[in-house]
Write a protein that binds this DNA or RNA. Structure first.
Lengths: 134, 134
DNA sequence: GTACGGCTTGACGTGGACGTCAGGGCAAGA
DNA sequence: TCTTGCCCTGACGTCCACGTCAAGCCGTAC
């Protein structure tokens, strides 16, 4: 199949496929007219890439999965290097989620304090605070 | 004070201050030599900006806080528009954290499945799965 | 005199994953 | 023959918050 068909099957754009090729991630054969030609294996690799990108993986992080498929393995994550990427990503996600949760709490505290100050400035009695710490 | 001193006091760079001025966020007076001049109020505004940026706020989102300080309020979050930004940010953080948690679970499942497949391919008996769903 | 430090403006570089446009080729259908 | 549709390459644009470099001015210390 040609580039337009593959792009449509994978729900992406031809520009994206040319970009992946320029990165050496998804090279294409060429037909007599110099047009890119793909097969079912390419579709599988592309779908693997898109799934991981939807998870927030960077393009380079998908390379082990693609290489794994190209090596003939049944799935992109059948290889140790792919599992290593999974584990790194899990750790990264855990760190990020924890960090965001911290920020969330800080922002929530700022908001509460500012709301309390606003109420007090409006003449309301200082509201009792649960678990006052000082 | 001049730009270098302010930058150091706030732990940032002169380039950053010029950038903020170009965005209309932190305009500066000029002295006889055309050098930028700042005062304590500017330092407070700058610190407000940096705190919010550390929280992950975009630069534009800090504008209501700066405007609030400039209007003479005791704190950058003493104004309704600042509180609105806080609330929007909390909702955004909640959404993002939830999304990341979903992704984390999906990646974790992919990893477990791939590990199980690898063990099985290695000749181990299929491990019993807790809470099998199908 | 001159070296130095701080300041000025202007403008290009960074990163990631593409979007978009320009200019051109090739084949099939009306 | 002309249009339509798909493809090609090359190259600039996008977003955001700056980093970095260039060229030059000004005051001060040596």
């Amino acid at each position: 199949m040609r580039i337009g068909e593959l792009a449509e099957l994978a729900g992406t754009s031809t520009r994206t496929l040319r970009y992946y090729e320029s990165r050496g991630l998804l090279p294409a054969r060429r037909d007599g007219q110099g047009h890119r030609t793909y097969d079912e294996g390419d579709l599988r690799m592309l779908r693997q890439i898109r799934m991981l990108r939807d998870f927030g993986f960077e393009l380079e992080e998908t390379r082990p999965f693609v290489d794994c498929l190209r090596a003939g393995h049944p799935a992109g994550d059948s290889c140790p290097s792919s599992l290593a990427v999974y584990r790194r990503k899990l750790a990264e996600l855990d760190g990020l989620i924890g960090q965001l949760a911290d920020v969330r709490e800080q922002v929530a505290r700022q908001l509460s304090a500012a709301e309390a100050a606003a109420r007090e400035a409006a003449g309301e009695p200082a509201a009792p605070r649960c678990e006052m710490t000082g």
